[in-house]
Design a protein around this nucleic acid. Sequence first.
DNA 1: TGGATCTTGGG
DNA 2: CCAAGATCC
Length: 462
Amino acid sequence: MSGSMASVALAWFRRDLRLHDNPSWAAATAVSDAAALVVIEPALLSGAGPWRRRAYLAALAGLDQSLRAEGSGLRVAVGDPAEAVPQVAAEIGAQKVTMNADVTRWSTARDQRVAEALDMPLDAHWGTVVHAPGQVLTAAGTLSRVFTPFFSRWIQTPMSEEVEPGSASVLAPPPGMALHDALGDELKEPWSEHDALSQLDRWQERVDGYDDDRDFPAIEGTSALSAALHFGLLSPRHVVASVGTHTPGRTGFVRQLAWRDWYTHLTAENPDIYRASLRLEYDRIVWETGHGADACFDAWRRGQTGYPIVDAAMRELAATGWMHNRLRMVAASFLVKDLLIDWRRGERWFRRMLTDGDLAQNAGNWQWVAGTGPDAAPYFRVFNPVSQSRKFDPAGRYLRHWLPELARLDDKAIHAPWLAKPLDLASADLTLGVSYPYPIVDHAEARQRTLAAYKGALGRNS
DNA sequence: TGGATCTTGGG
DNA sequence: CCAAGATCC
Ligand SMILES: Cc1cc2nc3c(=O)[nH]c(=O)nc-3n(C[C@H](O)[C@H](O)[C@H](O)COP(=O)(O)OP(=O)(O)OC[C@H]3O[C@@H](n4cnc5c(N)ncnc54)[C@H](O)[C@@H]3O)c2cc1C
């Protein structure tokens, strides 16, 4: 019989690095004794670029700090969770292990292996989404392939109650099993749930301007909470509950969190989202390959395409791990629709470099830009990098910050230096081809080429 | 959550 | 000449 309450539980933290409103932690601490475990997985860490790696390690220090504030601490293992989790569970005499589930192919396979290696239950909760996959369905009981109906269902679905940690006494890590033992001099300054919660507090003062300000990279018009959400320093349902929907800015912001849930649900149903177009016919597109394409891809990564808005964005990404949403769309569109390079190559680069890099969100958004996903931008919707630049950075403030070599061009010329009069280039001390590249493609031609390639793929019979 | 191009109607 | 609307990609 399973009637008796487990009295010792192990909470295995993964992408839910907080104690507040954490269903797995609440379940683990509802018994008499609990312990908090993180398993640093070298295979996962090696896929992360410098910014995400740093943020992850800092978030572990933050979780450790939260636990220490309560008199315990985080227990840390390095290696394969299928070995580490059963081992720690046995050491503390646990009767169950709790965790918050994830949706990627990699993590579900890993959790399967861990469950098989354990001689006790591995209880899965949901703590990284507002509504769990399967909770927001059409009348037919399926996941909507169109965002708007998904959103109306999503917003009408009652959120489950936020949960508090229970009263279990929390076991501190034994000697040699603390975070600093695992990390040594890689130990980072803590980035904790309290930091993220105060960032959320500060955002509350600006969220009403979200609708007006969100599209302009030169101003801080968005929350910048994505990394905290990725690592689970914040609970998305707490964020939604505390922001509310009583002004247009708030509704707009909450709507973005619905996109996040939607891509999570789509990934749960289609774990191949990062490698297979969700509309299969788009995998017939013939992408540019070979040396020329490789050189273009490289220029894109390094911010040397000759299109200032793309280059500024790509340089910011490499230098900081951050890129504004508008610029993610512009830079991604440029790779796919101006360079005709497979969206999967760009997806991998973004995911590696972004601090908030997240398989479901990144792959979902790349498929959206490439037109290969459900409810995606139609393929013929091609961003013009110069118009986007003029529209969303009219005074060139963002461009000047990341492209100092263009800083002395006037507000009109800076969006397209190759169109500037020679005199203006000279007086701005700029030599195209030397201090800043000429455009590596002609946008109008590239657009035609891409429309033809897409049309070719879609028109052809299977 | 486009853009290019053409049309129309007002200056 | 330009803004706004329609249409196509
Ligand atoms: C090509 C491309 C790649 C992207 N890759 C990622 C990624 O790897 N990780 C990631 O978290 N977001 C990704 N996004 C979505 C979006 O750009 C970021 O979430 C957003 O810019 C983060 O800034 P913010 O926190 O200030 O967002 P806000 O505008 O303040 O939005 C609030 C929250 O809503 C969520 N959100 C906002 N926009 C989206 C969106 N389009 N799709 C899904 N969730 C969204 C994020 O969690 C965000 O923190 C990508 C978008 C594009 C176009």
